[in-house]
């Protein structure tokens, strides 16, 4: 890891460790879940060059899976998260096999269509309780002895999951697999001519991204003790695109910053009601017009260091 990224990692960890002293912890937990979600999304678009417009299906599926497992089947939290994640991974495998056959806008449209199908399934299925969602999901005892009803226990758990997920993504990006993925993003035809079966690499990237998005969704469900349609809605798929672009596509820390900014806006501008969407839209336009690399991307470019 270059020094610039080590420093950024330290700053990020320190922020999430110290911020709950002054900021509402539930808000920070939400931010970390979305940050992980955006990082997972960024793995696919920023390093694999694949724009998914249906990532909410993984967030939503893992959320419902974890909520159902914890509430109805009485799973302990670690297994509820694992179950939700596995459900997202399975969905990733199935939808990935379909979607990666196409590129560019077609890929985006297929993922959107599949995500809409999942949304309508969750709207109709009995176990999701439709508009009400699965409420009062018990957080339970982690490993049988850590009571997650305690906000600090929950906070530490989310922090640990977020950091582990973030570092795993970092590892993937810099692995031999990550190198091939970048090559495919840079020049797919050339990667093929060198003998790489690019579809298999794309599928693995898609699967990893879906799985990690699932971790974020399942964790978020335990934080809010709620799985709802919001997480599976197409606007959530759009929001993660916004977070990633705003923070910096293809940067390591950008999605985290983007998620923090968007979640803060939603939180602190909540009294503006529907105007939040308009503010977000304005920010998006400004971002695309004036700092296309995103916040972190621009800072990295200015420092001439990878971030």
């Amino acid at each position: 890891m270059p020094r610039s990224q080590k420093i950024a990692l330290g700053v990020m960890a320190a922020f999430f460790l110290l911020a709950p002293l002054v900021v509402y912890p539930v808000f920070l937990m939400k931010a970390m879940c979305f940050a992980l979600f955006a990082c997972a999304f960024n793995l696919l678009i920023g390093f694999g060059g694949l724009l998914s417009f249906g990532h909410a299906m993984f967030l939503g599926t893992a959320g419902y899976g974890a909520a159902h497992a914890a509430k109805v089947w009485g799973f302990p939290p670690e297994f509820a998260i694992l179950f939700g994640t596995a459900a997202a991974a399975l969905l990733g495998l199935v939808t990935g096999l379909l979607a990666i056959r196409r590129q560019g806008i077609y890929f985006a449209m297929i993922t959107l269509a599949l995500a809409q199908m999942m949304y309508f399934f969750y709207l109709q299925a009995a176990f999701t309780h439709g508009e009400d969602g699965i409420q009062a999901v018990p957080r339970g005892m982690l490993f049988g002895f850590i009571d997650l009803a305690n906000v600090w226990a929950m906070y530490s758990t989310v922090f640990a999951i977020f950091m582990a997920g973030f570092l795993l993504i970092y590892r993937v990006i810099h692995s031999p697999f990550g190198q091939v993925l970048k090559a495919i993003r840079e020049n797919e035809q050339r990667a093929i001519s060198l003998g790489y079966d690019v579809d298999r690499y794309k599928l693995l990237a898609y699967l990893l991204s879906a799985t990690l998005a699932g971790v974020a969704g399942a964790t978020k469900t335990l934080v809010f003790q709620l799985a709802s349609l919001t997480d599976a809605h197409w606007s959530m798929s759009g929001e993660v695109v916004l977070m990633t672009l705003l923070g910096g596509l293809g940067t390591v820390f950008g999605p985290v910053a983007g998620a923090l900014i968007i979640i803060s806006l939603e939180n602190y501008l909540a009294q503006l009601g529907a105007w939040v969407t308009i503010v977000q839209g304005v920010i998006f336009v400004i971002c695309v017009l004036t700092f296309r690399r995103g916040v972190i991307g621009e800072i990295g470019n200015w420092l001439r260091k990878p971030l």
Partner: peptide, 12 residues
């Protein structure tokens, strides 16, 4: 070994 997503890039 190009599917090894868990390995550090240093092996290359």
């Amino acid at each position: 070994g190009s599917f090894d997503f868990w390995r550090a890039g240093g092996v290359l």
